[in-house]
């Protein structure tokens, strides 16, 4: 099947710029960080669209992450001066994941002072740690190979969780965060759809006030 450039555009024939908000716009409008559920959702949705829409793009700013009305999340091209070089080419999947992890963390950290740190739930912190490839610094990435007596399936599961190498790995971890993994596509799409709708509502309200 042919893949469109913007996943959000698949929802309607006439999807325009007003049907998407960048993560940066969302952060600025609320003037506060995203919550943890939104972070899981943006992560899952973004990896979903990255899986379907290649070539890989490194995420340089929250302005590139676009949340669409229908709850899909896509990555806009980097408009920076070096876009077309680092933005598109010679960029591996793990590099894209790393950059996405950093952007998601920054969205969770939005507005906090340099000497402050947000307390994240351990699973989300672990996800970002693994995405951003910062795990070795805290010594917690032991690859899980000490469990030689464990079954192969368990070992394989551990390997998958300890080493993120693909968008699919990220999505699996996001799905595992839910009580019912099979609900991940609908749930995370609904969270992103709500994020878009609530931000639009706030925007309309603030515009009226002005």
């Amino acid at each position: 099947a042919e893949t469109p450039l913007e996943p959000g555009a698949t929802a309607g024939a006439a999807a325009g710029p007003q049907d998407a908000l960048s993560l940066e716009e969302i952060l600025r409008l609320y003037n506060q960080p995203i919550n943890e559920e939104q972070a899981w959702a943006v992560c899952y949705q973004c990896c979903g669209s990255l899986r379907a829409h290649r070539p890989p793009r490194r995420v340089r700013s929250a302005a590139q992450v676009r949340v669409w009305r229908d709850g899909t999340v896509s990555l806009a091209p980097d408009a920076g001066p070096d876009s077309g070089k680092m933005g598109y080419s010679h960029c591996t999947e793990t590099e894209v994941i790393e950059s996405l992890g950093i952007i998601i963390y920054k969205a969770l950290d939005y507005g906090l002072k340099e000497n402050e740190e947000r307390e994240l739930s351990p699973p989300l912190e672990q996800l970002i740690d693994r995405m951003a490839n910062t795990v070795e610094a805290d010594g917690s990435n032991d690859e899980g190979y000490e469990a030689a007596e464990e079954g192969l399936e368990e070992e394989e599961e551990k390997r998958k969780i300890s080493a993120i190498r693909s968008y699919r790995d990220v999505m699996k971890l996001c799905a595992a965060h839910l009580s019912t993994e099979s609900e991940a596509p609908n749930h995370y799409q609904a969270v992103c759809r709500a994020l878009f709708a609530e931000t639009k509502e706030l925007h309309t309200f603030l515009t009226k006030i002005k």
Binding site: Q32, P33, N35, D109, N115, E116, E117, R118, T134, D138
Partner: peptide
């Protein structure tokens, strides 16, 4: 509803914020 509720702690040298900062 819709509010981000989170705890803030002092930034730690070995915390995730420091590790992310080193990457950027």
């Amino acid at each position: 509803k819709g509010k981000s509720l989170y705890k803030i702690k002092p930034r730690h040298d070995s915390g995730i914020k420091a590790k992310i900062s080193m990457k950027t």
